[in-house]
Design a protein around this nucleic acid. Structure first.
Lengths: 178, 178
DNA sequence: GATTTTACGTCAGTCATGTTGACATATATG
DNA sequence: CATATATGTCAACATGACTGACGTAAAATC
């Protein structure tokens, strides 16, 4: 470590710490997506296909509008990708029974197989990282990432025991002082 | 794997935990980059410009080849982005004195100002997350993300007390991927 | 000193993924 | 019936990545 002239200088350390976190996110996310991208290329697919396959697998019978909300893209963007996945038999569409305008999406066996292949890769990577970092670190990882997210997205990651009164009232940690 | 439906089923919990981590990375990274992307749009720039500005700011007088290694893209891809940044006066190039083939890059005042604006945003987001999650969580966050990264990239994030003798010990075995 | 390698640039084409805007169709709902 | 909603589609465009080929100056090596 380079020794600091004229005292510890906490401001500099903090700046350095924050920049390291920024870079950590950049490099980790890139490596995290690199291998699935490779696999997808064999199918002529890209990362966008991965996302669609992932979230359709995660939410079977999801409506297009819900998927659009999760992905945060336009229907025209989704259309191309989803159209390919349907045309090539990775995703099946059925009209909703409550609302027949909806086209509910689910993975076919073929789609589920690809989902497994892609997710297994990332899951293994995360599992390894969790194992090497330890259980406490996992909690810290989640705590920080949840707070990096926009508040509106945090609801998906609410702790299991949280009994939400009323609608949401997020602002989980009011006592973050140290 | 066969799914077991009776009892607490730790395997299912683990699967759920890992999937939550995968999604956490997706949503957090997206939100993390959204605001800078907005700012960049005002300048007619994109996320690629951000990365270049960031790393040139972080490593003043960096050579093009080093920047390419960090970014992990081709020189043709960098060329357009870097060319714009130089043409519009955000980055300055000077020939290296030890090796005059090199064009060493550094931010101009204008470039440094934009870098500050962009990074301040992400730094504030991370700072808030660190504050809310607590100091222990920060260590966990780093521990997990470092292990999610490919090994070849971890050297940048070595802890200060790292037993590496020789001060830098790059060992950048990473060749250009794909 | 000649040759080869390196650092960098550039032209040209392609692909994946996002965007807007406009319009169409079927169904639900008032 | 009128209108809103869910979805799809056509067209045009921007960004950022890729490959391949070629060029030039300087360094390194034989």
């Amino acid at each position: 470590m380079t020794d600091v002239k004229s005292g510890p200088n906490p401001l500099f350390l903090r700046e350095e710490e924050l920049r390291q976190a920024i870079e950590l996110l950049f490099f980790a996310y890139r490596d995290f997506t690199a291998e699935p991208d490779q696999i997808l290329a064999d199918y002529g697919f890209g990362r966008a296909h991965h996302r669609v396959i992932y979230f359709v697998g995660r939410h079977p019978a999801i409506a297009v509008s819900e998927l659009l909300q999760i992905l945060g893209i336009t229907k025209q963007s989704l259309s191309r990708v989803l159209g390919q996945l349907v045309a090539e038999g990775f995703i099946r569409q059925r009209p909703g029974q409550r609302d027949r305008r909806q086209r509910l999406l689910e993975l076919t066996e073929k789609g589920a197989a690809l989902e497994r292949q892609l997710t297994e890769n990332q899951r293994n990577r995360v599992a390894r990282a969790f194992r090497e970092a330890g259980a406490e670190a996992v909690e810290g990882f989640r705590g920080v990432l949840v707070n990096i997210m926009d508040e509106g997205n945090r609801a998906r990651f609410a702790p299991p025991d949280s009994h939400a009164h009323g609608s949401d009232a997020p602002s989980t940690s009011s006592t973050g002082r140290r």
